[in-house]
Structures are given as structure tokens and as C-alpha cells.
Amino acid sequence: MTLTTGRVLTRRLFLAGLAGSLAACQQTTAPAPKPAAALPVRDIEGYGPVTSEPYPVPGVPAGAIRPEFLRQEVAYSTSEPPGTIVVDPGAKYLYLVQAGGSAMRYGIGVGREGFAWNGTALINMKREWPRWTPPAEMIARQPELEPYRKGMESGLQNPLGARALYLFQNGRDTLYRLHGTNEPRSIGSNVSSGCVRLVNQDVIDLYARTPLGTRVVVLPSAAGV
């Protein structure tokens, strides 16, 4: 082998090694992106999980209830004495009258058109995590409720939710209730078959403030704005 030939081979080997080194430093495909970190689920302040209940109540996610329907104390002028509950279906509010011209106000969901009820009643019965028994006329309208003719067990899926306050007139059950719901997005709308629903956190709060015998005034729907 001549010196020239040796130099040529040496040069070729050098270039081949350099190319291999460069190829090893290059990535032929882009690296897979790292998965984005999951954002924490935030609950509305004051509406977090309630873990002390027989059935733990989940928190109400931010945005599930419009701010105006969150529980708050407001100025409220009425001739009704403190301790009275005033339900305004049109405005989708329930007021628990306080002394000094104020009230604790709760957002509600109310009966669909044609099922709304109004009048004056007393709370003669209260239940925590009640069973739900649909009336016969409701079963007639909704045959899928037949399995619950003798009642549905309590729990988060029960339509009455965590608490129920039963409205009576002249000592007789009107079949209308103030009750809980696990559907916070239904607050502020016409949704149920006549009863007044509050998110579970609110009905638990109202229940604790409301003794048996409390007077309830349900205004006609046209009273709301």
C-alpha cells in the first residue's frame, strides 16, 4: 500500500467516524411532550365537601351555581316575623327572615310550569336523609318510577337529598317539601315537580336553623322578577 493510499483511507475513516458521532448527537424525532399537570378541582367557598354526613356530600364545583344564588345575608323588608320562611319562586330565592330587616337568602330550583304551588303552610315534619316516595299521580305520569312506589332509600341519588322539610296545611301533608339536591346546576331554574330544592349544603344549613312549626309562605310565581 502506498503512502497516498494510506492517507486516503485514513481520511475516509475519519469522516465516517465524524458522521457517526454527529448522527449520535442528533434526534431523529421530537421528544414526546410531558402531560400537563391536572388542575385542582376547586369548590365554591363555603360549599366544600361535607364529610360528617352518613353519605359524604361532594363539594359544589366553582361555576356550578351563579353567584347571586349563593347563600348570603341580605337586606329584606317584609311584614312577616323573624323565623318565617318566604319562598319567591319567580326570583328563585328562599328567604329565612331575620330580625332587624334582614334575611338569610338561598338560591332555589322550583317546579316546572303547571306544577308550581303557592300558599301558606307549616313545617310539621323534618327528616335527615329521608326516603322518597313518589305520589301515585307522579307514577302515572312517569311509569319508570313504579319501582319506587314503596319508597326509595336515602342517599345521594335520592331526589330529596340530605334533608327534607315537609309542608302541612290544616294538619294535612301538602306533599310539597323544601329539600336538598345533588344537582347544583339546577339552582335558579324551573326543574322539579312542584317542590322547592336547595343544594345539599344549603338545605343542611336551613334545616339547622328551622324548628318544627315554622311558618312558610310560598308566593305566586308572578311575584318574582
Rank of each mutant, 00 (worst) to 15 (best):
P67H: 02
G17H: 03
G151V: 04
V74Y: 09
G17Q: 09
S189L: 01
T210L: 11
A162R: 05
N170G: 14
L70M: 06
R163Q: 10
R163D: 02
E45L: 06
Y207V: 06
Q142L: 10
C195A: 09
G151C: 06
R141Y: 03
R141T: 01
Y93W: 15
A16C: 05
A24Q: 12
V110S: 12
L219P: 05
N170T: 10
P54M: 05
L167S: 14
V196S: 11
G63A: 02
I65S: 09
N190F: 09
V196H: 09
S21D: 06
A38M: 07
A37S: 10
R11W: 11
G20Y: 03
L94N: 03
R12Q: 06
V50M: 13
Y47M: 08
Q72R: 15
A223Y: 04
R66M: 01
G90F: 08
G119W: 12
G101F: 05
N200Y: 08
R163N: 02
Q26V: 14
T10A: 15
F69C: 04
Y93H: 15
I44Q: 11
G171R: 12
L15F: 05
F14P: 00
K126N: 14
L156T: 08
A208F: 04
D205R: 14
L18T: 08
W117M: 08
P49C: 09
T4I: 08
V97M: 07
L9F: 11
P89Y: 02
Q98F: 05
A23C: 14
S189V: 01
Y93E: 06
T181M: 08
A23H: 09
G109R: 04
R7T: 11
G180N: 02
C195P: 08
M138Y: 10
S192V: 01
F14W: 12
L96D: 09
G188D: 08
